[in-house]
Design a protein around this nucleic acid. Structure first.
Lengths: 218, 218
DNA sequence: AATTGTGAACCTCTTCACAGCT
DNA sequence: AGCTGTGAAGAGGTTCACAATT
């Protein structure tokens, strides 16, 4: 019997590692390094060489046996795979401490994520500029996001407001949401949500220090 | 033949989910809800009921068959497991955009992570206060961290400085490091490092939007 | 001689399904 | 009847090991 497998799926772990390899390759190419082996790339990222090769093998063959990988070529390939060879239009919702830090976050700008609009509900913030971005009224989020062709929304509002913001972003045509509020959110199929919660990792540290015998440590 | 298994290890995923369950339980108890089932707790967190029960089963049995879990009791148990029933002394290194946001990050304070010291190398920042925390010279990091009995260090410095900061934190007696610099770091056994990189998740969104057919969606 | 690409083996995590308790 | 706790099955991710290539 023939089973319709559908296309091979890529795991979150692989996607995360590709981001890291990409950063390493940028670092290497800035220093004029032309070639790298899977072993060396692995050591830069705390993984095994086999893991690096398997990650790439999901997308094609980028190296040469006996020689390793060409740094620039591999970098271009990962950029293409990840969608980093172009600019992304991003809207920030919530101009609190976290939001303001993101408005001036190098790692977004460098990778082509341009925060073109910011929104808040606080009248004291609406109409002001932070890091040269004008703060709009979240009331107009749906219309403004659509008019500005926003592709990704960053949610940095309190938990109670987060789902309503997501709903407006979805109506405004956004295709991806990066959520900093510590709550699980719903979006229709075709809209991707990713979660960022800085407290979770520091709690994982508290767990590890409290229970060192229960934690795998390299 | 008898094999010395060592203690059962707990996966990162389980630890992350425990953090999330803990937040849900706080939310429920604030609303006076006394009891919850694994099914309901699962729905709040986008996982399955079996997953919730398996996560708990690593640490003991906290529910009652037929009745579910007592919210407050479960919350206390998770706090104990995660080491959240006490305060943690945290030092922040790097008072840039990200560092300043963390100095006023509710989710740290609420869970008992108190940033008692901040460090920077910029003479324009040393001696000033941000969010009521005095900025010290990173030159004295090792001694000040030891004197202040710092347990966790938060690294929010540029990539080039990150490893040197980790080395000083380790010498200063720190047991856990939360690293925001996009680079892999080394620490001796017994010192735990966790990584936080906000660019990685937005890049995962770019990947998902670019290759929707390759991504598992819900 | 060095290093990739990859099937197979291995290991870990998740889900199933049901016995056991309330 | 409702719901937990858990061994077993299933799915998925990682490592091994080696043929293929430069």
């Amino acid at each position: 019997m023939m089973t319709a497998d559908g296309p091979q799926r890529i795991s979150d772990s692989t996607v995360h590692r590709l981001s890291k390899y990409y950063r390493t390759l940028t670092y290497l190419s800035e220093r004029g390094i032309k070639t790298i082996s899977s072993e060396a790339l692995a050591q830069h990222n705390g993984v095994t060489a086999a893991q690096v090769r398997k990650d790439f093998s999901c997308f094609g063959t980028f190296g040469r046996r006996g020689l390793g990988y060409n740094v620039l070529e591999l970098q271009r390939n990962i950029a293409r795979i990840m969608g980093l060879q172009r600019k992304w239009s991003v809207a920030l919702v919530g101009v609190g401490n976290v939001g303001r830090a993101l408005l001036d976050y190098d790692q977004f700008r460098i990778q082509g994520f341009q925060i073109t609009m910011a929104f808040d509900s606080d009248p004291a913030k609406i109409g002001r500029e932070f890091h040269k971005v004008f703060v709009r009224d979240v009331f107009n989020l749906e219309n403004d996001a659509r008019a500005g062709q926003v592709e990704i929304g960053v949610v940095a509002v309190p938990v109670v407001a987060a789902q309503a913001v997501v709903d407006k972003l979805v109506l405004g045509g956004v295709k991806g949401i990066l959520n900093f509020a510590p709550i699980n959110l719903k979006a229709p199929p075709g809209v991707f949500i990713r979660y960022e919660n800085m407290a979770i990792e520091i709690e994982a540290l508290a767990f590890a220090i409290t229970n060192p015998e229960l934690v795998r440590n390299d």
